[in-house]
Structures are given as C-alpha cells and as structure tokens.
Design a protein around this nucleic acid. Structure first.
Lengths: 114, 114
DNA sequence: GTATAATTTTAATGTATTTTTATATGCGGA
DNA sequence: TCCGCATATAAAAATACATTAAAATTATAC
C-alpha cells in the first residue's frame, strides 16, 4: 500500500523516528527543554547536583518561577530531586539527556553555528 | 565572585552551553521541533524532499494545519521549500537538524529508551 | 511550642499556540 | 477564459503556557 507520493511502507520504516509513541515522548522532552530558563537550568546542572537556592542565584529569576520550572522538569522525568534537611538538590535524572545537551552544544555553539 | 553554593566562575565556563545567546538560539530551535506534528514532519522528511500533499497524507491532519506548521518551520529556517508547478516540496534545510533528530532517535528509541 | 527560612502549591491573570473553518491565490488543462 | 487541484492565508475559537502573588508545607533553630 502506497501513499500518494509512492512512499512505500518499507521505506517508511527507515525514517528517523517512526513510532507515534516515540515521537510524542521526544516532543514532550524537547518541549520541556525548549524554554530558555529550563535549558539554562539543565546546562547549569550538567552532571552536578545543585540546590534550588543556588539555581535561583545563578539563573536569575524569582524563586517561585524557578520552582515551577523545576516542577515541570521533574514531572517530565528530566530531573530528580533529593531532599537534605532544609534544602532540595536537583540533578539531571538521565545521562542521555546530558548527552543530548552536549549534542546541542555541538549543533548550536560549534564552529558552524549560525 | 562566588554564588551562594560556591560555584566559581571558572567552573561555570565548563558548563554545557554557556552563552545566553546560544541558550536562546537552542531553545528557539527546540521549540520549533517540540510539537508532535512538527517533529513528525521532520522525521518524515529526513533527507528527502516531500510535497505538502504527501505530508498531509502521511501525517494526518488538515491541509491547513499542516500548511501552518510548515510555515512555522520555514520561518524559523528549519525547512526550505521548492515550488514545482502545482506543488510545493519541502526539505530540511540544515543537515545539523537531521543529525539532531538522529541523536534523539538514539535517546528516545534506542535500546535504553524508557 | 513558636518563629523563621526554604520550598512547593494554588490561584489568578495575561499571553501565545494550536486548531478549525472559510476564503484566497497560483498553476495547468479543457 | 474558466475550472479543478494544490497550497497558502486570515480570522475566530479552543487550549495551553508563563508570570506573578499569596497561601500552605516542611524542617530547623530558638
């Protein structure tokens, strides 16, 4: 069975991301990362664990705003939180996300960046 | 000058993406890609050139909706359009975007995908 | 136990995005 | 020219997001 363009199913299988489910997963993750503050938080974290207070100091917006962005990243499974007494420390939960950020650096900050 | 956490500027320099400007650039690109329909279009395109009609048939929403998402991707410089008589053919304008999608496939569809 | 500090949650508001519907434009054929 | 097809645009309606401020939670210090 062909599409109007004659794109065969056998070809479709080779496309970059094929499953609806994976597309949605990736789109949600991209969306989570596609806000400047959230991306900045992710870049600030890298492989480290940083407290909310320190994130606020480094990123520079209200603590409440940061907290809500952290919540978004937490809910989407990008960040993990650890409580220590008075403070909450965040880290990137999945090393693949760190890789993805690294790749984006190559794409957007490398010698060929626009 | 230190942050409250004692994060030194010399350390900050090593973080993944450091320049405000690059952060914003990357965030905007991610945003363009972070809608399921747009990501699906990008994955459908890959390295090929596909007509609007075929995109509509493959992706499955109204022609108008597709056209508007294509316009967004076009305006952000992600896609390039070529007109041939009656039809318009789209392709991904920048090979780095193709790379990025490939990387995401590894992250979200690979053996370790959630 | 009360106060204080750090963080999260809730609520309210405005703004932006997405979708839908309807209409317009451009191109090729009769 | 006039029609039909492919694509684009515009306007309106529906949804989703971001921002801000205020209230609620939790932990520690006194």
């Amino acid at each position: 069975m062909n599409t109007a363009a004659g794109i065969e199913m056998t070809e479709v299988r080779d496309l970059l991301i094929e499953k609806e489910e994976h597309i949605d997963l990736a789109a949600r993750a991209l969306k989570a990362m596609s806000h400047p503050l959230r991306l900045k938080i992710l870049c600030l974290l890298g492989e480290r664990e940083v407290s909310v207070q320190d994130i606020v100091d480094c990123v520079g917006t209200s603590q409440s705003n940061i907290s809500q962005h952290l919540a978004i990243l937490r809910e989407k499974g990008v960040l993990r939180a650890r409580k220590d007494a008075n403070r909450v420390y965040y880290r990137i939960g999945d090393s693949r996300v760190i890789n993805l950020i690294g790749m984006m650096r190559e794409v957007f900050c490398g010698p060929f960046a626009k």
